[in-house]
């Protein structure tokens, strides 16, 4: 078994063990989805119009929830030292941690997103696209979020700092995904938005680990 496989297994077990894995993010997601009709009124036509965009935005915000603990605990308890002295570069370690974050939070949220959109009145035909956007976007949110978490290491009020760092970087994927969903609902060509979203995700997966590793090295120093 390769060391990185072993690390992924441990990360998954730890994410699942601390605070119930995907449950807090899913509960938050279900909560805001339920509150939306109370806030803007229960008229089906109005809800249906904003359902896909809202489901998408709420997913971006729900991905922020458990980021604070992604690196902070390992930094505080010395685990990051142990990992840094292992066989893999910090870049790969950071990527594995983000992947585990996506598998335990992003993937369940991607499954919940089409349900939320349909529950708010979006056409059922839109569900596959919502799922695909949530899947690809969730991966970008995990890696960009990991970057924020690594940069906030060692600071007080890390959670606030993470949100401030990460939210501007969430804007492009939110725009691309929202654009694809809006175009599809209006019967217009929608593939460009999805392609841009996938491109942003690929860029985040490729580049964020380099920045995360640099931030971790700084924190350990």
């Amino acid at each position: 078994m390769s060391p990185l496989t072993v690390l992924l297994g441990r990360e998954l077990a730890l994410t699942w063990g601390r605070g119930g894995g995907p449950l807090p993010a899913l509960a938050f997601y279900a909560g805001v989805t339920t509150l939306l009709p109370f806030a803007i009124g229960p008229e089906p036509a109005r809800l249906a119009a904003i359902a896909p965009g809202f489901a998408w935005l709420a997913l971006a915000l729900a991905s922020l929830l458990s980021l604070e603990r992604l690196f902070e605990r390992d930094f505080e308890d010395g685990t990051l030292d142990l990992l840094a002295l292992g066989p893999a570069p910090l870049e790969a370690i950071c990527a594995i941690k983000c992947l585990a974050q996506w598998l335990t939070t992003g993937l369940p949220l991607a499954l919940a997103a089409p349900i939320a959109a349909i529950a708010l009145g979006a056409p059922v035909g839109l569900a596959p696209l919502v799922f695909v956007c949530a899947l690809a976007g969730g991966l970008a949110f995990a890696f960009v979020g990991g970057l924020g978490a690594a940069l906030a290491l060692g600071s007080r009020r890390g959670g606030l700092l993470i949100a401030i760092i990460v939210l501007p970087l969430f804007a492009p994927p939110v725009i691309f995904g929202g654009g694809a969903l809006g175009q599809y609902a209006a019967g217009l060509p929608w593939t460009a938005g999805l392609a841009l979203l996938a491109g942003w995700t690929a860029g985040a997966v490729a580049l964020a680990p380099l920045a995360m590793a640099a931030a971790c090295r700084n924190a350990l120093d």
Binding site: R18, D74, L80
Partner: peptide, 8 residues
Amino acid sequence: LDGLKGGR
């Protein structure tokens, strides 16, 4: 700091 996780 020994990097041991309490829950494992």
